[in-house]
Design a protein around this nucleic acid. Structure first.
Length: 465
RNA sequence: GGCGAUAUAGCCAAGUGGUAAGGCAUGGGCCUGCAAAGCCCUGAUCCCCGGUUCGAAUCCGGGUGUCGCCUCCA
């Protein structure tokens, strides 16, 4: 397995801390609002990583956190007059439900920041004792000048003058790069007692603590892979790395992976730009699996420009897989075709080269169709194809549906009955060689977005679009 | 201003030195009562300029465009 490491800025061979195991920590969402397509893409990127490592026989421990205490959450609580718990549990559940719809399973461990307050207090206390953290009027800060390796992850070179213009500066900070570990709270805000002052944790501290708590290995590195969106590289991941390094002497992660953004009309989707496409709205229009396949279909590091047109093109590609699944319907899977499996895993082992993998799938489908055209009754062959498709269900999380149901998404029972009635009439017309009437009935259905296909097994139909 | 990414056919998109994967669309064909589906055939010299090399989309230098990070952000 080769992955692109953001710190080394190149593809490197994945050599886990412990042979055969992979400990992965992904930065999850701050739960104060609905998830958008960007969250989905990030989750999908590392869901793919998880699946591929498993297919390569790694024992994977996959952790994804929820940030459930934060300034934005507090604002929203006050706005909506809800408790912290009420607000965050709602959005956590919604996030998980939506991810399930996209075929993303829960992480092995899903820690919440508020469940690790003790650890964060202790962590900060150690940094204070080491004189790496210091106190100001509004909180405890991390002294970045105490970490010689600071900025070695992101390779940023920050200039004070420009930063000043954009950040509300705490003048008590020793260095402008220093960041808050703990924020002293106002009277009406959620807060936690601490020896160094009542308050709440800063954003970066939770990941360091939760990694230490749930995943930590002994030795030079605590975990194998730390992952998240490209926007987290700096300052979030840089700061996490610095905290852990200074506190424990260990590096936080051996490898760092970052996914590219989802853009709309070429611009990054973000809360501040107000151009977010929320997952709940997308899932109202598009099937979860189709959305999954679309968002997964280009390389995770590249930016992904969302467009409905491209989504529909992508769906056509998935349609082909399901049409093949129709052709081997009801056949039990036999052994997987090694000629298919091998190049698939090779492609995905190369930093998750999904484009190449999809090309291999297309080729497998094309060859299968070609063979089935010539040998429509070869059940032995069909069993192999069935096995290939079943394997893809695990590997990519696609093709899980009943193939007939897939093509009838969004059609209710009453409509189905009507469609089947018209198909029956048409079959009768055809039997009487009344082709004008048969074509007219087909035209009626076409207008309703129903495509007919006459096959040796009778007339089948699909909902188009 | 600092750091970084990216620029491949009408569109999406692989490809880090040897004469450009795949998908969609287009046009033609087989099949079909006609279709649909499936299958076959059909298209680019890789943003521009210069350099290295026997040979570059791929390496180096210089431009130009687009996007991102440096502020909460997947």
């Amino acid at each position: 397995m080769v992955i692109y490491d953001s710190q080394q800025r190149k593809k490197v061979t994945f050599e886990p801390i412990k042979m055969g195991e992979a400990k992965i920590y992904v930065c999850g969402p701050t739960v104060y609002d609905d998830a958008h397509l960007g969250h989905a893409r990030s989750a999908l990127s590392f869901d793919l990583l998880r699946r591929v490592l498993k297919a390569l026989d790694f024992t994977v421990t996959f952790v994804k956190n929820f940030t459930d205490i934060d300034d934005k959450i507090i604002n929203k609580m006050q706005q909506e007059k809800k408790s912290l718990e009420e607000l965050t549990s709602f959005y956590i559940q919604r996030y998980k439900d939506e991810m399930h719809t996209l075929g993303i399973e829960d992480a092995d461990i899903e820690p919440k920041a508020t469940q690790s307050i003790d650890e964060m207090r202790n962590f900060i206390q150690v940094l204070l004792e080491k004189n790496i953290a210091y106190k100001t009027d509004d909180g405890i800060y991390f002294d970045t000048t105490k970490d010689p390796a600071y900025l070695s992850l992101s390779h940023m070179q920050i200039q004070k003058d420009l930063t000043q213009a954009r950040v509300q500066e705490n003048l008590q900070k020793r260095d402008f790069k220093d960041f808050a570990l703990w924020k002293f709270s106002k009277a009406d805000e959620p807060s936690y007692d601490a020896a160094f002052g009542v308050g709440r944790p800063g954003w970066h501290i939770e990941c360091s603590c939760m990694i230490e708590k749930h995943l930590k290995s002994e030795g030079a590195f605590q975990i194998d892979i730390h992952a998240g969106g490209a926007d987290l590289l700096f300052p979030h991941h840089e700061n996490e790395a610095a905290q852990t390094r200074c506190k424990s002497g260990q590096e936080l992660a051996k490898y760092w992976m970052h996914n590219g953004f989802v853009t709309i009309n070429g611009e990054k989707m973000s809360k501040s730009l107000g151009n977010s496409f929320f997952l709940k709205d997308a899932l109202f229009v598009y099937d979860g699996e189709i959305l999954r396949f679309y968002l997964l279909s280009s390389h995770y590091r590249a930016n992904f420009n969302f467009s409905e047109e491209d989504l529909l093109v992508s769906k056509k590609r998935l349609d082909k897989l399901y049409r093949l699944k129709k052709r081997v319907y009801g056949i039990a899977p036999s052994l997987l075709d090694d000629q298919f499996k091998k190049p698939m895993l090779e492609a995905l082992s190369d930093d998750l080269n999904i484009s190449k993998a999809l090309a291999h799938i297309d080729e497998m489908i094309m060859r299968a169709n070609e063979f089935l055209d010539a040998h429509p009754k070869d059940t032995e062959f069909k069993s192999i194809i069935r096995a290939n498709l079943a394997w893809l269900e695990q590997l990519l999380g696609i093709g899980l549906k009943d193939p007939f149901a897939y093509f009838q998404l969004g059609v209710d029972t009453a409509q189905k009955n009507e469609i089947e009635k018209l198909i029956k009439e048409r079959s009768e017309a055809k039997a009487q060689k009344d082709f004008a009437r048969a074509d007219s009935l087909r035209e009626t259905l076409t207008c309703k977005g129903i495509l007919l296909m006459d096959t040796p097994q009778g007339t089948q139909w699909e909902k188009s679009e």
